Simulated scan of single mutants.
Amino acid sequence: MFPQLSHAKSSIPLIFLLLLSLTPLNAASAHSVKISADIGGTLHIEPNDNPQAGQPAKAWFALTRKGGKAIALKDCDCRLAVYAEPHTPQEPPLLEPPLKPVSAERYKDTPGAEITFPKPGAYQLALTGKPTSGESFKPFELKFQVTVASGSQNIPQTPQNVNQTINNQAVETQSPPLPLWAIAAAVFATLGIVLAVMQKRRR
């Protein structure tokens, strides 16, 4: 029993070193690291890892193989699927945004995509990949949980809406013209006051 316990304790530092080698050195604490086979990945979403519904968000994946070498998109046959949570295993993905090479921080041409989440709530991003010819890492699947906040309530204005808004503001700032009878009444009232003053002076 004791030899087995000693062997288990001696393997703990090796496991820790493996996890450390798969973890990007500059990953922020807010970023969750996922490991599949011999690949580690960290999800980054711009801006500020705070996606909002209805607004495009730039997502990119920092992928590293065992030993810390980064994986570029050209070296990986990668696919991204977005699911609304909860979902069943047989359910088709809500979105399958195309992946494009992104250069960010110390990663060059890493897999990235622009995602517009349709509404607030919980989503799962599933990144699957296998090596292209000449590469030697194992096929992997990394799943990340993402919470999407409510988008801005500001509705984008078309040129027609902008012109209408400007015209409405112009109408509101202009005082409405006085009717003709009001002008005539004011004139007669002024003349009456002048005549009354003149008659008092004559007396």
Rank of each mutant, 00 (worst) to 15 (best):
I155R: 14
Q145F: 11
L73N: 04
I39Y: 03
R79M: 01
S133E: 14
T23P: 08
F140S: 01
S21Q: 10
E96P: 00
N48C: 01
V171C: 00
F188T: 11
K34C: 03
N48E: 14
L180T: 03
D75T: 08
R65M: 12
P131L: 06
L95D: 06
T23N: 11
V146T: 01
K100E: 15
D77H: 09
D75C: 06
G67F: 12
Q174W: 06
D75S: 09
G112F: 06
E141V: 06
P92I: 03
L63I: 09
F16A: 09
P120D: 02
L17Y: 08
A186N: 13
F16G: 00
L180P: 08
F61L: 05
A182P: 05
P176Y: 08
G121W: 06
M1G: 04
P13S: 00
A126V: 15
G112I: 07
L22K: 01
L94S: 03
R201Y: 05
G41T: 12
P3L: 09
S11G: 00
E105C: 01
A57F: 09
A113M: 10
C76G: 00
T132F: 06
Q164D: 14
A53F: 04
A104N: 02
P93Y: 10
G134N: 00
D49H: 15
V162Y: 14
V194R: 05
L20F: 10
L95R: 06
P179C: 09
T132M: 05
V82I: 15
G112Q: 05
P13G: 01
V162E: 14
L125H: 04
A196I: 05
N161I: 02
S175F: 13
T88S: 15
L94P: 01
V197A: 11
E96G: 01
T190G: 14
K74F: 10
P13M: 01
P24L: 08
I45W: 05
T128Q: 13
T128G: 12
P13N: 02
L191Y: 10
P101W: 07
K69N: 13
H44M: 12
T110D: 00
D109V: 02
L43K: 03
L63D: 01
L191G: 09
A196T: 12
W60Y: 15
D49K: 10
